[in-house]
């Protein structure tokens, strides 16, 4: 009985151990299991290297649009839209230009030469493009300036007219409130004024 148990335990243990070894020794997988339906997990992905994440590379890629039409920059597209076939290629081009020792500006210039100005995330502020950057600000400044000048003049004219207005005559009988410089008003009018001034600021 004891011997049989020992045998079964040993046999079972050997089977489990064998299984574990088999799992660990899978073809180039170490302890990594295979997916039941790899096609459902999207396109097979390459391993990310240190260079893919390098600050220089990501910074350059963020200055340029992916050409797939998504509107995102190359870095964001390649790390977001995993169905895009353009951004991985563009990424490889950036890496290749970097391998040639090109600076960030040189890489961007090379991309503009190849794909046109529309590859830039924002147009370079040269020539007609300057209008793109400065027109909104200039229009606001211009309109604001004109508005300020007109309003300033109007308020000055209004103030002058008020200063020239005749001084209020003495209070009529029955009026209990006095407001300096105000025209005569009855009790009812003053109460209405009080009420409306309170409403005014609500």
């Amino acid at each position: 009985m004891t011997r049989r148990r020992a045998f079964l335990a040993g046999f079972g243990g050997a089977l489990v151990a064998g299984g574990l070894r088999a799992q660990q020794a899978g073809p180039d997988q170490d302890q990594t299991g295979a997916l039941r339906d790899p096609g459902a997990a999207g396109r097979p992905h390459e391993r990310i290297s240190e260079r893919d994440n390098a600050e220089f590379i990501t910074a350059v890629e963020k200055r340029m649009h992916c050409t797939c039409g998504c509107g995102l920059d190359i870095y964001t597209c390649r790390t977001t839209d995993f169905t895009c076939s353009f951004s991985p290629v563009l990424h490889q081009e950036v890496l290749a230009l970097n391998d040639e020792g090109k600076s960030a500006d040189d890489i961007v210039t090379a991309f503009v030469a190849k794909y046109g100005e529309k590859v830039l995330m924002a147009p370079k502020p040269v020539g007609f493009n300057i209008a793109g950057y400065v027109v909104p600000g200039l229009v606001i400044l211009l309109v604001g300036g004109i508005m300020f000048a007109i309003l300033k003049r109007r308020t000055r004219v209004l103030a002058a007219a008020q200063a020239e207005a005749p001084v209020a005559p003495p209070m009529p009988a029955g009026a209990s409130h006095a407001v300096v410089g105000a025209p005569p008003a009855s009790q009812a009018e003053l109460e209405r004024l009080t009420r409306e001034m309170q409403e005014f600021d609500q």
């Binding site: 200055r63 649009h65 509107g71 920059d73 046109g116 100005e117 529309k118 590859v119 830039l120 995330m121 924002a122 147009p123 020539g127 007609f128 493009n129 793109g132 950057y133 027109v135 909104p136 600000g137 606001i140």
Partner: peptide, 26 residues
């Protein structure tokens, strides 16, 4: 300003004949 930026690619293409894109940095 938002309208201007949105339409600027069309304007630029009409004036210069060059396609440009206006993205978040702009």
């Amino acid at each position: 300003s938002v309208l201007w930026g949105t339409l600027f690619p069309i304007l630029s293409e009409a004036v210069r004949g060059t396609k440009i894109a206006v993205g978040p940095p702009f």
